[in-house]
Each structure stands twice: as structure tokens, then as C-alpha cells.
Nucleic acid binder design. Structure first.
Length: 187
DNA sequence: CATCTAACCTATTCAAGGC
DNA sequence: GCCTTGAATAGGTTAGATG
């Protein structure tokens, strides 16, 4: 409707003047082949909310990183309207409350297992975050290799971290901030 | 240039595991 | 039971490719 008067983002690509590296901040754009797209779309039409197993299978099938598939489904859901079938209903009824309806079990596929970071891994992540909360693809991959996790996990970790601990531009910090700050400075 | 869409973002919610 | 936080979501932005 109306343009945002000012965009408050600056994406943290500022210090590229200093960085001589800085080939590119984001990962290079993936080009899916028609065959890959066909399989992706086909799967999407069947289940727009695939679980981890399905995404892994897809990744193998079309020889693409699972994180790319995740992103593809995110984008697809955002831009295309899709059939809302059983998964959606299961999604809604699953945690609101399940009085006595085990009828539609196993509709929702399991998500990826929760990663547990060691204290040294967390230490490295937090250190990197303090240096730059918006690492580009190169930094993320370097860090991922350093601590022995996938780059996708690193990216998610930074997203969560920024959302919860970094952005102080929220309205009223109040006492919640104090608690979080303690945690954030923990390491 | 316009269009499409991968990559990326924030904000919020789901949920596993620890206390 | 509640808290922390990784995973997933909705919805929006940025930017590379292509006509």
C-alpha cells in the first residue's frame, strides 16, 4: 500500500570497504534444472510442509543441499497458494489441544533433531557473533568448518541469536533484557 | 527496465532437553 | 512445570539472472 518511509536495515555489509576478501556476502544463486524443479514442485504439491526425512530424501534425489531445499519450500509457500490438505489441519490441532483425536496420527513428519552444541562450539559461535552478527557465506563456512557443524546450522544459530539477543531496537526492553543480557554475556 | 525467484532477514511459534 | 534455545514458520526484502 504505502512505501516504508525509511528502511532501518543496513544488512551489515558495511565493512566491505575494509575487507579485501569480500568476494560476495551471500551464497551464489542456485540454478535448478528443469528436472530438479519438476521433482521439487511435484513433492510440494503433495506435501508443502515436508519433514526432515522428506527433505533429506529430496536432497539426495536431486543432488542438492538440504538447506537449499528448505529455502525453496519456504519461498514456494510464500509465493504460491497451495492446497491445504491434511497436514495443515494436523498442524493446527496438534498442539492447540488433542482431546481424543488420535485418528489422524503421523500426519506431521518429524523435524530435524535438535543440535546440541558443546561449550567450545558455543564459545566460538558467540565470539564470531560479537565480531560480526551478519556473517556472509564465507565466514559462515569457515566457522562451520572450524567447529565441525554444517553451515546451515551456523546460519540458523545466527538467525536465532540475532532475533533474541542482538536487536535492541525493540520497544521496551524492561527487565527481560537484563535476564537475557546475563545469559548473552555468559560466555 | 520488468519480472522472477534464490538468498536472506525478523519475528514468532513449536518443541526437545535441562533444571 | 518452567526455561532456554534449536528448528520451523509466516511474511517481507535484497539481489542475480533473463527477456
Amino acid at each position: 500500500m504505502f512505501e516504508t518511509p525509511r528502511i532501518s536495515f543496513n544488512m551489515a555489509q558495511k565493512d566491505s570497504a575494509n575487507e579485501t576478501i569480500s568476494t560476495c556476502q551471500r551464497r551464489s544463486r542456485t540454478k535448478f534444472t528443469p528436472d530438479q524443479l519438476k521433482i521439487l514442485i511435484d513433492t510440494f504439491n503433495q506435501k508443502p510442509y515436508p519433514g526432515y526425512a522428506t527433505k533429506q530424501k529430496l536432497a539426495l534425489e536431486i543432488n542438492t543441499e538440504e538447506s537449499r531445499i528448505q529455502i525453496w519450500f519456504q519461498n514456494r509457500r510464500a509465493r504460491h497458494s497451495f492446497q491445504r490438505t491434511e497436514p495443515e489441519q494436523a498442524l493446527e490441532s496438534s498442539q492447540t489441544h488433542r482431546p481424543d483425536a488420535p485418528a489422524v496420527t503421523q500426519v506431521r513428519e518429524a523435524r530435524r533433531c535438535r543440535t546440541t552444541y558443546t561449550s567450545s562450539q558455543l564459545c566460538a559461535l558467540i565470539k564470531a557473533f560479537k565480531k560480526n552478527p551478519y556473517p556472509g557465506i564465507d565466514s559462515r563456512e569457515r566457522l562451520a568448518k572450524e567447529i565441525g557443524v554444517s553451515e546451515a546450522r551456523v546460519q540458523i544459530w545466527f538467525q536465532n541469536r540475532r532475533s533474541r539477543f542482538y536487536d535492541q531496537r525493540k520497544r521496551e526492553p524492561a527487565e527481560i533484557r537484563g535476564k537475557i543480557r546475563d545469559k548473552a554475556q555468559g560466555l
